[in-house]
């Protein structure tokens, strides 16, 4: 059974995107990604109010002995960052798709969403 909810969209860099009722995108890293990283200890996230562009580097997630870059899945303006996850990086391991979200974004180009993967596609991508 997949650990990756079907209502989310995914990137090959292991971010997920959830589109809320108000059209904003919530972004995080996948169950698979946090499992590979191990205990997450530190996050570097973009500033609230900054504009981020698809596929560019937007931050870092650190485990004890590795760092991974975070890439922007959809362009837009950063509305909010998860302060709770910054103070408690273990949220990423505990609930990567919920309490461990990273940022909320006001999407600037909705067509980019079409380039994201479904959970099935993502599961296939990480299996290969």
């Amino acid at each position: 059974m997949s650990e990756h909810p079907s209502d989310l969209r995914y990137t090959k860099e292991h971010e997920w995107v959830r589109i809320g009722d108000d059209g904003t995108a919530t972004i995080g890293i996948t169950f698979f990604a946090q499992d590979q990283l191990g205990d997450v200890v530190y996050l570097v996230l973009p500033k609230v109010g900054s504009s981020i562009e698809k596929d560019s580097k937007m931050g870092e997630v650190e485990s004890v002995k590795s760092i991974s870059d975070l890439f922007v899945p959809v362009s837009g303006e950063v509305l909010e960052i998860n302060k709770d996850a910054i103070d408690h990086p273990e949220r990423i391991n505990e609930a990567p798709h919920d309490a461990g979200w990273l940022i909320k974004v006001k999407i600037s180009n909705e067509t980019e969403l079409e380039q994201l993967m479904s959970s099935n596609e993502y599961d296939q991508a990480i299996a290969s």
Binding site: K65, S66, I67
Partner: peptide
């Protein structure tokens, strides 16, 4: 805080 260091970063 070893992720600052050369052997990782």
């Amino acid at each position: 805080l070893q992720t600052r260091e050369q052997h990782i970063r």
